[in-house]
Structures are given as structure tokens and as C-alpha cells.
């Protein structure tokens, strides 16, 4: 099997576990490909916009283990924390997140250990995403893999927030935190508007303009009547 590229330092850090981690990621990627295809057949549209994956770098992993008061070893990295292997699935629309999540739960050989719905329960800073931690059992070791499912808007926000985290700013830190939160709440609003617009375009919502006191002449001249 032709594995995806992992830097040499990363392979060295995870030692004997690296193959299991890569196996798990490859397996998930293949399953996502199938989900894409099946959805396209059913919905005439692929809900998945993009897929990213990574094995956590030795530097970030060491930092995380130390934060948790754990010794920096490959064993702890794979058994005690859950995101040594990570796959992120980016969707176009909000409702696509639900679709993808329910499809992922059907994947054979994956045991869901934990789900965190940061979309309906956003983090304090405004972070929104759906996290699934699962265990993948393969020939050798069982390893954890973290799946993150979110919309393009949520992903854009998260990548900006991530970049800001480690930067010194020319303006106050609290100001940046507040502004990021504001952007997150605006994007959440826009995600809902886009989802809704799509439904309107597809004729999925009844136009109430006339029954709610719109001027009939105006409605006729617009596109509002063309669908009925």
C-alpha cells in the first residue's frame, strides 16, 4: 500500500505506531470517498467540499502531552490523547455536516468513543465544528483518530483564529478575541442564510408574500410567482 507522506521526524517519534496511524487515516479517507460517491448518487450533489488530514507533529504532540502532565512517549501519544491522527471534512452547507456525521457513524470497523457538537454548543471563543473521536481496529494496534466536520465558513474562521493564537498584535489581545467572536457569530448567521437560500432556490419553502399583505402587482413582476 502506498501511504501518504509523513516527515521522517514524525515517523521516528511515533515509532512502531506510525503504520497503524497511517492505516487508520487511509481507511477513513477511502470511506469518505465512498460517502462522497453515494451522496452524489442520492442527492445529485457531493456534500463534501474538501478533506484534510495529518499526523500530529512531534512538537505539537509533545506540547499537548506536557500540558496534560504526561510523559512524552509514543505510547502516551497514541493511547492517552485522541488526536495523533486527524481527518477534517469540510462541507459546503450547514446541513451537509449532519449528513456526513450520520454517514460516518455507519462506517464499519470504527467505534465512536466521543462526539462533541461545537456547532450547537459553540466554544466560548466562537469556535464551531463537529468532533468525533473514534477507535479504529486494524491488524496490529487499535488507535484513536479524531474527525472534525465543519462548513467552509467555520473552517475559514478556525484557520484565522489558529494563526492569531500565537501572534503578538499591535492592538489589545481582548479586542482581537472580541472581534474573532463577533466574526464567528456573523459567519454562523451567514451559514444559516445560505442553507436557507439553497432551500428557497430548490423550491423547498412556500412563498408567503401574497398571503401576508404584499402588493400583488409587485409580486407578479418579480420571480416570486414563477415557481407556482
Amino acid at each position: 500500500m502506498n501511504y501518504f507522506y509523513v516527515p521522517e521526524a514524525t515517523a521516528r517519534f511515533y515509532g512502531g505506531y506510525i503504520t497503524s496511524l497511517q492505516n487508520a487515516v487511509e481507511y477513513i479517507l477511502a470511506q469518505i470517498e465512498i460517502i462522497s460517491r453515494n451522496c452524489f448518487e442520492k442527492l445529485k450533489r457531493d456534500p463534501i467540499e474538501n478533506v484534510k488530514y495529518r499526523i500530529k507533529s512531534p512538537e505539537s504532540m509533545a506540547e499537548k502531552l506536557l500540558d496534560h502532565g504526561l510523559e512524552v512517549t509514543a505510547e502516551n501519544a497514541v493511547k492517552k490523547v485522541y488526536d495523533a491522527a486527524g481527518v477534517r471534512i469540510i462541507t459546503s452547507f450547514l446541513e451537509d455536516v449532519d449528513t456526513v456525521v450520520s454517514e460516518i457513524k455507519k462506517i464499519k470497523g470504527l467505534q465512536i468513543r466521543e462526539e462533541k457538537d461545537y456547532i450547537n454548543n459553540p466554544k466560548q471563543n466562537g469556535y464551531r465544528s463537529y468532533h468525533i473521536i473514534c477507535a479504529a481496529d486494524f491488524k496490529s494496534d487499535s488507535v484513536f483518530i479524531e474527525l472534525q466536520i465543519r462548513t467552509i465558513a467555520m473552517d475559514t474562521w478556525a484557520s484565522v483564529e489558529h494563526r492569531m493564537k500565537y501572534k503578538k498584535s499591535v492592538v489589545g489581545e481582548q479586542l482581537i478575541v472580541n472581534e474573532l467572536k463577533r466574526c464567528a457569530d456573523q459567519l454562523a448567521s451567514i451559514d444559516l442564510s445560505l442553507q436557507n437560500l439553497r432551500k428557497i432556490i430548490n423550491g423547498g419553502i412556500q412563498n408567503e408574500t401574497i398571503i401576508c399583505g404584499g402588493r400583488e402587482s409587485d409580486v407578479r413582476s418579480g420571480y416570486g410567482n414563477s415557481s407556482s
Binding site: S189, L192, S193, Q195, N196, L197, I200, I205, N207, E208, T209, C212, G214, R215, D218, V219, S221, G222, Y223, G224
Partner: peptide, 16 residues
């Protein structure tokens, strides 16, 4: 603006 805009915005608010 055409009058349908009112209903479109109502539907946004409902969703939210």
C-alpha cells in the same frame, strides 16, 4: 427592492 424580499428575510429569521 422587490416585495418578495420580506418573505426571504422572514425565512432567514425563522431558520435562525
Amino acid at each position: 427592492a422587490e416585495v418578495n424580499v420580506v418573505w426571504v428575510y422572514i425565512s432567514y429569521l425563522r431558520k435562525k
